[in-house]
Amino acid sequence: MTTLITGASSGLGAEMARQLAARGEDLALCARRADRLEELRAELLAAHPDRRVEVRTLDVTDHDAVFAVVRDFADTLGRIDRVVVNAGLGKGAPLGTGRFDANRDTAMTNFVAALAQVEAAMEVFRGQGGGHLVMVSSMSAMRGMPKSMTTYGATKAGVAHLVEGLRAEFYGTSGYDFTVLYPGYIASEMNAGVAAAENRMMVPTEKGVAAMVAAIEKKKDSACVPALPWTPLSVVMKHAPLPVYRRMI
C-alpha cells in the first residue's frame, strides 16, 4: 500500500506518516518545507528501514506543481493507492472587517488548492482503475461558523462536498473509495496557540491521529474524530436551535 499525504511536514500530516509507516505502508510525502520533510523521511527510515519514503517540495497553491508532483510520485512509485488531502490553512477574520486578504488566502488554500489536489489524485486513480481518496475536513464544516472561523468552516464544508460528489459518481464502481474526516480539537501546529488547559476537548496529536488512521484504514465514508465527543456533538451542531448553537461555539 502506498499513501500520498500533502501537508506532511508537520502536525497531523507528519503524525499520519509515522502511524501509517508503522502499519507497513510506503509513503509519498509533500509539503512546502523541504528541510522538515527530509527530517521526517530520515526518522521514518530509521524506524522502518524496509519502507519506501519519497518526498517532494510542494506549495499546494501552485496548481501546476500539484499536478506535476502527483504525477511524478505515481511514475516513481508505480502506483498510488491512497491520497490524503491534508494541507490547509487556519487563518481568517470576521467578514467585512477589512481582512479580505486573510480570508482569501484561506479560501484559496483550503478549497481551490484542495480542488487541484483532488483533480490530480483522481487523474491518477482513473488512469490506474481505482484508489482511495481521503479528505481532511473539520468539525467546523457541520454548520456555519461565526467571526474568524466563517471562511475556514465554509472551505471545509466545500471540500467535504467535493468528496461526497465523487462518492455519488462512483457509487457501485469497484476499486474506488472515498473518506471524509471531520477532526475535532487535535493538537497540532495550526492550533498551537490554544493550550489544552484552555480547551478540555483538545486531545494529543498521537491520539487524535490514531482515530483518523483507524477511520482511513477501515475506509469509512465519513468519520468525526475522535468519535467521542465529536460524533454526538455533530448531531447537536447540525440541529440545535441557533441560540443554543451560538452559546456552544
Rank of each mutant, 00 (worst) to 15 (best):
residue 195 A to G: 12
residue 109 T to C: 02
residue 143 R to S: 09
residue 129 G to F: 04
residue 140 S to M: 14
residue 110 N to P: 07
residue 77 L to Y: 06
residue 141 A to M: 03
residue 68 A to T: 15
residue 69 V to E: 12
residue 135 M to L: 10
residue 123 E to K: 01
residue 199 N to F: 11
residue 91 K to H: 11
residue 70 V to R: 08
residue 98 G to S: 06
residue 57 T to G: 12
residue 82 R to N: 12
residue 163 V to F: 06
residue 86 N to H: 03
residue 124 V to A: 05
residue 187 A to G: 12
residue 130 G to D: 01
residue 152 Y to A: 11
residue 117 Q to K: 00
residue 184 G to Q: 13
residue 82 R to E: 14
residue 195 A to T: 11
residue 179 T to E: 03
residue 180 V to W: 00
residue 107 A to T: 15
residue 126 R to P: 01
residue 88 G to E: 07
residue 187 A to Y: 09
residue 73 F to D: 08
residue 151 T to Y: 09
residue 145 M to W: 03
residue 109 T to F: 05
residue 150 T to K: 04
residue 103 N to T: 10
residue 107 A to Q: 09
residue 157 A to I: 02
residue 76 T to G: 02
residue 143 R to L: 07
residue 202 M to F: 04
residue 131 G to M: 01
residue 196 A to Q: 09
residue 75 D to H: 12
residue 85 V to E: 07
residue 158 G to K: 05
residue 137 S to N: 05
residue 140 S to R: 07
residue 88 G to R: 00
residue 162 L to V: 01
residue 151 T to I: 10
residue 182 Y to Q: 06
residue 199 N to A: 14
residue 164 E to F: 05
residue 74 A to H: 13
residue 165 G to M: 13
residue 202 M to C: 02
residue 184 G to D: 10
residue 63 H to T: 04
residue 145 M to T: 09
residue 97 T to V: 11
residue 120 A to F: 06
residue 82 R to C: 15
residue 68 A to G: 14
residue 200 R to Q: 11
residue 119 E to P: 00
residue 131 G to A: 01
residue 132 H to L: 00
residue 188 S to M: 10
residue 172 G to I: 09
residue 112 V to T: 10
residue 164 E to A: 11
residue 102 A to I: 03
residue 180 V to T: 12
residue 154 A to H: 10
residue 99 R to Q: 15
residue 96 G to N: 11
residue 104 R to E: 15
residue 75 D to W: 08
residue 188 S to G: 13
residue 179 T to H: 03
residue 183 P to C: 06
residue 168 A to S: 14
residue 86 N to C: 12
residue 145 M to I: 01
residue 182 Y to D: 04
residue 97 T to S: 11
residue 71 R to E: 15
residue 150 T to Y: 11
residue 201 M to G: 08
residue 133 L to F: 00
residue 117 Q to F: 00
residue 113 A to G: 05
residue 132 H to S: 01
residue 144 G to R: 08
